[in-house]
Design a protein around this nucleic acid. Sequence first.
DNA 1: ATTTAATTGCGAATAATTCGCAATTAGAAC
DNA 2: GTTCTAATTGCGAATTATTCGCAATTAAAT
Lengths: 134, 134
Amino acid sequence: MDIQKTLSSAGLKCTKQRIAVMEVLLSSSGPITAEDIHSRVNEMSLSTVYRTVETLCNKHILAKHTIQDSDKFYYDIVTEKHHHYAICLGCKSMRYIDHCPVHTADIDGFTVTGHKLEIYGYCNKCKNKNSVSN
Amino acid sequence: MDIQKTLSSAGLKCTKQRIAVMEVLLSSSGPITAEDIHSRVNEMSLSTVYRTVETLCNKHILAKHTIQDSDKFYYDIVTEKHHHYAICLGCKSMRYIDHCPVHTADIDGFTVTGHKLEIYGYCNKCKNKNSVSN
DNA sequence: ATTTAATTGCGAATAATTCGCAATTAGAAC
DNA sequence: GTTCTAATTGCGAATTATTCGCAATTAAAT
C-alpha cells in the first residue's frame, strides 16, 4: 500500500503525522485504539491522533470499530479482506482472522465462547435523510 | 418473565428501581442506553441506572452491547432468542431480528448496507487468568 | 522564496460513566 | 409489627475518552 498516494488522492496533505499513523496501522495485526497508536508513534500529540483517525475515517481509508464491553474505539485500515475479527474478552483486543465460516468452532490460538453477527444499514426513518444523530 | 423471582434468585434485593429498569427493558424492542432507561422511568437517579445495569450485567441478567460509531453502551435482557440485531447507522438504535440467515438481504423496514460477524472468546494469554483488563 | 490554507500542539471543555459518602430501605430476626 | 443491618440509593464530584479553540507551524501551490 502506497501511503503517500492514498493520502494525496483523498485530497489530504502528506504530513509526517498522518504517515506515521498509517504505518502503525499497516503493521498491526488488528484494529487498535487511539492511545495504542499514540504510544507506538513518537512525538505526536494525542489530539492529532484523534483528528487524524477521524479525518481518515471520513475518507473511508480507516474504519472505526467498537467491541463488547470496551469504552474505546478501535481503528484499522479498510481493505477487501478484513471483515472478521477475533475479539478477546480478556484484554479487549481485536485480531484479523482470514478464514471464517459462520459456524466455525476453531481459531488457532483462540478459545471461542460465542459469536455475533451485526447487520448494519438504515431504518426507514433514517433512510431518506443524511442527518446522523448520535 | 417473573422479575421478582429473577432478582431474588440472583441474590439481589427487589427494589422498585431495579423492577422499573427491568420493566422498561422487558417492553423494549431492542437494547437501549442508560439514558434511554432513565428517561423512560420516573424518579430515579442516573447513577442508579448505571449501577443497576452494571449489577444486572454481572449476574448475567442483562447484556451490554456496543455499536459501530456510537460512544454509548446498550443494554438488554439476556434470553435464548435474541442474538441478531438490526443496527441503524442513522439513529444508532438496535432492534431485535428474529429471523437471520447469514447471507440475508432483506429485513422488513430496514435497508441493509453491510453486516459484521464478531467472534468472542479468549486468546491464549487470557484463557487461564480470570483478570480482565480494559 | 513566498504565500496561504490546512494541519498541528497545547490545554481547556465536553459527555458518558464511575465513585464517595451520607441517607434510605428491603428483608431477616425477633 | 418493630428492630436491626447490610445493601441500595441519591447527590454531586471525579474520572476518562474524546473533542474543541486558538495560536503556531507546515505542505505544497505559485
